[in-house]
Write a protein that binds this DNA or RNA. Sequence first.
DNA 1: ATCCTATAAAATGTCGACATTCGACATTTG
DNA 2: CAAATGTCGAATGTCGACATTTTATAGGAT
Lengths: 221, 221
Amino acid sequence: MLSPKETYKDIVIRHIYDGLMEGRYSPGEKVLESVLATDLGLSRAPVREGLRELVSIGLLEYRPQVGNFVATMTPQEIVDTYVTRGVLEGFASSEAAAEMSEEEFDLLDEKAGRMQLAASRNRKKELNDLGEIFHKSLFRHCRNLQLHKQAESLSLKHHLLFHRYWANLYSPEEIASRHRKIVNVMRSKNPDQIEKTIREHYFITGNRIADLARQESGNNA
Amino acid sequence: MLSPKETYKDIVIRHIYDGLMEGRYSPGEKVLESVLATDLGLSRAPVREGLRELVSIGLLEYRPQVGNFVATMTPQEIVDTYVTRGVLEGFASSEAAAEMSEEEFDLLDEKAGRMQLAASRNRKKELNDLGEIFHKSLFRHCRNLQLHKQAESLSLKHHLLFHRYWANLYSPEEIASRHRKIVNVMRSKNPDQIEKTIREHYFITGNRIADLARQESGNNA
DNA sequence: ATCCTATAAAATGTCGACATTCGACATTTG
DNA sequence: CAAATGTCGAATGTCGACATTTTATAGGAT
C-alpha cells in the first residue's frame, strides 16, 4: 500500500476506520462533520471529502440534508455480503487456479498453518491480516481487475466484522482445515468445484457471523 | 427513479452523464472544476461533490493534486466489466428464477419482442431502456440487495457503451433470439445452466463491443 | 394530557477567497 | 544540442462564513 502523500482526507478516513475497529462508533450513530473537524483540527471541507469516500466504500450511510451515519448491517445483509463475495472470489479464484504452480499451492497450505498458529495464540490482528493475504493469494493471478476492485470493497467490511466476532467463529483447527480444503480444490483446477467450494466457505462464514450478531443484538434488547 | 429533491450535486452528475452520452467529453479528457462551476452557475463545492460521486461510480478517474479525468476503458477492461457483470447477474438470476412464475417468463418473452421491434426501427433510447428493464427483471426477485448494488454500477457504464456502439452490435433478430434464449433457460430453473447462459451472453457482448472500440481507436490512430 | 404549531438551535449545503501543489515554459549548464 | 534547473501560471486543497434545511423545544388549543 503506497501513499505518495497522506492528505487530510486520508487522516479522516483512517480516524473513522480505526474508531470503527475500536468500537468508538456504534452502528446507526451519527457522525457530525463539525466535531470531527474540531477533533482533528481541520475545516469541514476535507472532513466532508473523507466522509463521502467512506460512504462510497459502504462503511457510512448518507442521508441528504441530514448527515452521515455509521452503516448498520442486519444479519441478512451480513449474509448477503458474504454470499456476494463468495460469488466474486469464487469465480476469480477459478480463473486464477489455471495460472498457479504447485509451489504456490504449497505456500497457501503453509499460510493455512500459520493462521492456525496465530489463532491458537489469540493473535487477532495477525490472524486477520493472514486471512486477507490468504484469500487475496487465491485470486491474485486473475487478470480481471474489475473483480479485484469489487471484491476489495467487501473485504474491507468483512475485516471489521471479523475483528469483532473472530473469537467465537472458528477453532484454530477448523480454520486450518477449512482453508486447506480450499487449497486442495484449487489444486484440482476444476473451475466448477472451486467456485462451489469457495461460495460454500463464505456462505457458512457469513451465516455464523450473522448468528453472532443476532446473539449480541438479542442480549442488548 | 425518484429524487426527493434534486440538489446541485445531482445537476452536476446529470450534466456530466449527458455530456458523456452526447460525446461532449472524450476519454482521458480533463474535467476542470472551475469551468464546470461557471458553466452551471455554481461554486466549486457542489461541483466537487458531484465529481467525487462520479468517480465512485467509475465514470471519472481521480488523481490527487491533479484533477478528474474522463475514465478510459481499454478493450480488455471493457470485456472485464461485462464478464464481472455476467458473474453477478448470472448468480442473481439463478436465485431469482426459483421465485418466478410462468406469467413473468411470458412477459420477458414479450419484452424481447419489443426490443426486436425497437431495434428494427432504430429507436436507440427505447432499445437501451428496454434492455435495462429486461435484465433487471431477470434478477428482480433475488433478495440479495448487495448483488443489485454491485451490478447497477456496472450497468451504468454499459449503458454508455451500448449507446455508443449499439448500431453495429446485434441485428434485431439476433437481439430477440439471444434474449429469448435466456428466458428459456430461466424457465428451466436450473441454476448452473442459468449462470452459464447469462455469463456467456455478457462475455459475447463484451467482446463484440471491445472489438468495435478497437476498430474505432484503430481508425483514429 | 395530547396534539399541533411556532419558534429557536444546530447541522448540512453553498459560497468566495486564500494556500499549496503540479505542469509547462524558459533559462542555464555540461 | 540535450539535460537539468528555475520560474511562473493555473488548478486543486483548504479554510471560515453565510444560507438553507432539519430537528428539538416551548407554548397554546382542543
